[in-house]
């Protein structure tokens, strides 16, 4: 067991959460991060979906890595990712219909999420399945927590709720407080994301 959680493996898992965060440092997957974060719930579902897909596509590609013909390796990676994305989208439709409607095309667009192809090509193609799995989970969660932060800020100030539960009490509205409509627009997601990157760079010196 100790080898499963060795120093190297821990590093593989923890780096994308912070020092090598896919959104903050590698600046990948920005498009969907802006599009789905107007509410907290779709942000969480999107983050989890990407985590599941990166983890399993990493494992599958890592298992196949010695057999994949070099000339069509990107296509094989795409097929694996596309199959997983389609399955996730069908599962969401069956078990979380409202969320799947809200995420609409963005579930399908996980296929084109650069984080996935980036991790497959850069990590899974040259590493064992277990570290690849950790790398996938780490990258996915690194992506997810940024989405959750942006989604929480946008929902709180844009609609006064979190997970559709009212947080800002009614008397604030009676006293003249208003929801910030700007927060529900994608432009504001860009600005919040910029602030997160700023805070991250300021706090983490490396």
């Amino acid at each position: 067991m100790s080898s499963l959680f060795s120093k190297d493996n821990q590093k593989v898992f923890l780096e994308p959460l912070n020092l090598n965060n896919p959104i903050l440092v590698q600046v990948l997957g920005i498009c969907s991060a802006l599009a789905v974060t107007s509410k907290l719930e779709p942000s969480i579902v999107m983050g989890l979906s990407v985590t599941v897909i990166t983890a399993f596509s990493n494992v599958i590609i890592s298992l196949l890595r010695k057999t994949i013909p070099n000339r069509i390796r990107i296509i094989i990676q795409l097929v694996v990712v596309a199959a997983l994305v389609t399955i996730v989208s069908m599962v969401l439709k069956a078990f979380a219909y409202d969320v799947s409607v809200e995420l609409s095309v963005y579930v399908g667009l996980i296929i084109t999420n650069c984080i996935l192809m980036g991790r497959l090509e850069a990590f899974a193609m040259s590493n064992e399945p277990w570290p690849s799995f950790l790398d996938g989970v780490g990258s996915g969660l690194g992506y997810a927590w940024i989405l959750v932060v942006v989604g929480a800020v946008r929902e709180l100030f844009g609609s006064g709720t979190l997970l559709n539960i009212r947080i800002i009490p009614q008397f604030c509205y009676d006293a003249g407080y208003m929801d910030n409509g700007m927060m529900t627009m994608p432009a504001m997601a860009m600005i919040i994301l910029g602030c997160v990157v700023w805070a991250h760079r300021a706090l983490v010196k490396e």
């Binding site: 057999t67 399955i87 069908m90």
Partner: peptide, 17 residues
């Protein structure tokens, strides 16, 4: 290799669907 991959994926998706 490509052919086998596609067939496996097709069956998998059809089954889940």
């Amino acid at each position: 290799y490509a052919a086998i991959t596609v067939v496996i994926v097709a069956f998998l998706l059809a089954f889940v669907s």
